[in-house]
Design a protein around this nucleic acid. Structure first.
Lengths: 351, 351
DNA sequence: GCTTCAATTGTAAGCGCTTTCATTTTTTAT
DNA sequence: ATAAAAAATGAAAGCGCTTACAATTGAAGC
């Protein structure tokens, strides 16, 4: 006697009802279930006549492929796990958008999870995605150690790390040259005549925060301007910390005619503080951001910033996966992208 | 002879290696696989001693639960499918963030897909998510018909529609009172003395675009100001269309001292155009947006707008699912939320 | 017509887990 | 101590699909 399962007599949900199986289709079409599977997946060979028979049967029965069962049997889920620090804000969405667009065409799906820049949570999320047997992971993680990621790769986990470069698994990384970006920003300020340049850094425990600062320092060094901690404030990539940064800098008596910020949010915050203090942008103080998020151009004046080809990086991560994991050929990607300067209205030569 | 499967001798990926099964764990622990399943899922009863035995065995073997197999057997995937129009921008990410936060605590995951406001694509995505046997869907869809969604619900698909209200399945909808929001915005302008109010609408084929305009019209009517198409421009919710809107309005000779926009992006775009034309905000023209996205406060002056409790709506969608589909109790949600006015610096009384 | 080989289809063994039902063990009550 | 009830465990039948291999059919060559 067959077991009765999944019973919930009170409310029939979709999954409890209407579960037409491949078996039923095969019977209706008068073929074996293997053949039905073949037409569904377009594998093997099947005569045109048979295919039509099967298609008709599927349509008449309202068959819906059960991807879960298929995944178990084939050991492929066609699902990519994606860990991002947060979902809100303009940045991660744009990046995921780039990935999604590329994956959608290949009929892959994205299972997303947030890591909240917390090593513990990041690990749990990676674990969960692995348990769900994602074919590959795209990791935008900030707190977990390099070693941990290297280990994962050595265990055979197919993953690509974005916005972070780890030498040992460089092939699995796709990142922006943040040092160069930091350099470009400050170099621009120096080039137009500034020498007193404040710097509002991102969280320095994050690789990008650190690297952008390094770039800033290199630019100063290149131009023979001495770097001083007194002109640097460590923010946390949030707008508010930009505001606080300016206030703190001013409070400690720092003198500057320009301020470089590690991202656009903080630059916005800085601009707000500057205005509060009666300093005009860019006449009194020049401001430069980083990322070129969508709203950078909405500010007034438009924010001069460093372009982070975020969508491109997102799509490259997808291409990496498509090529490496699914064997799709001719997908192009590079491992380190270059930032570039976007001139708008918040920078000008000092008076 | 057992079949050999899943073979790819050249490169062993994670899923091909290290596949410890429940069976192996059960043997190592000297219990049946049913018992191992019980400790994993914390179901049924198992003696503390046995539990420890199993736990140890799992740890020693490095067991990882195979959620795909579990899903097939239990007919539950613990996955929620989420269709959003787009991934980029500040709006959808914030909403998904609200959902994710609530779902993460319940150990559910989100499979995301984008519909691009295209009925065909939206349907395909819904289909794909159903094939992946999501336990529930959260649909932020704009192009698909009400009827289609009603049908889905009648078929037993567990779904919640966000940002859209459909009478017949009102219980499955969580939305903002957009009419009220539109009303609030224009009413504010009227209250502070404006009577010549231009309106830059969102796409009118979308419910929210239409409803916000309706609210605007109601406010005018309430205050005895006649509505005229000449003062209305249909944009598409993108910043650029705000810019174009102002230009078009001015080009057609419309006279206005204030402009209400159907979202913050278009308001930003409008402000840019206004400045280009030498009109000061708010001295010459007041501007009000809608949504209160994160960057609204970064603009200068800060954008007066209507708050869309986006994160809250996101989390309510999650609560709906948790309660309805997973039987978690005491989850609170309401079906129609109220917008409210956020006063910042872009509106003032006409001179 | 008879081989030979390729194209097509079927058979059935899993994939790794959950869950019903039966069985065994333990506890409680008498 | 013993019966009855409760707790713990095990056996095994699926979940719906894929796929290796075998079997069949069809076409081509002689």
């Amino acid at each position: 006697m067959p077991l009765k399962r999944h019973g919930n007599p009170s409310r029939k949900t979709y999954s409890e009802v209407n579960m037409v199986t491949i078996k039923q289709v095969s019977e209706k079409a008068g073929v074996s279930s293997a053949t039905v599977s073949r037409v569904i997946n377009n594998t093997g060979t099947v005569k045109e006549k048979t295919r039509e028979l099967v298609m008709t049967a599927m349509a008449e029965l309202g068959y819906r492929h059960n991807v879960v069962a298929a995944s178990l049997a084939s050991n492929k889920t066609h699902t990519i796990g994606y860990v991002v620090p947060e979902l809100h804000g303009s940045f991660f969405g744009a990046m995921m958008g780039g990935t999604e667009q590329a994956l959608r065409q290949a009929k892959k799906h994205m299972l997303i999870a947030t890591g909240h820049s917390d090593a513990q949570i990041e690990k749990e999320q990676i674990d969960a995605l692995l348990s769900r047997r994602c074919d590959a992971l795209i990791l935008h993680v900030e707190a977990v150690s390099d070693e941990y990621l290297v280990n994962l790769v050595h265990q055979g986990v197919e993953l690509v790390v974005v916005n972070r470069f780890i030498e040992e698994i460089g092939d699995n990384c796709i990142s922006l040259d943040n040092v160069k970006g930091g350099y470009l920003a400050s170099r621009h300020l120096l080039d137009i005549g500034h020498t007193q340049i404040a710097y509002i850094a991102g969280s320095l425990f994050k690789a990008d925060g650190k690297n952008r600062l390094t770039g800033h320092q290199q630019a100063l060094a290149d131009m023979g301007v001495e770097y001083t901690d007194n002109l640097t404030y460590e923010g946390n990539f949030q707008a508010k910390s930009g505001t606080e940064g300016i206030r703190a800098l001013v409070a400690r008596g720092a003198k500057f005619t320009a301020v470089a910020c590690a991202n656009d949010e903080m630059a916005s915050g800085a601009m707000i503080a500057l205005r509060e203090l009666g300093r005009r942008v860019p006449e009194d103080v020049s401001v430069i951001g980083f990322d070129n998020v969508d709203f950078a151009s909405y500010l007034s004046p438009g924010l001069t910033t460093i372009d982070y080809p975020v969508q491109k990086i997102g799509s490259m991560a997808a291409h990496w996966v498509l090529e490496r994991v699914y064997g799709h050929t001719r997908h192009e990607y590079q491992h380190i992208l270059s930032p570039r300067l976007i001139l708008r209205g918040t920078t000008s030569s000092p008076e």
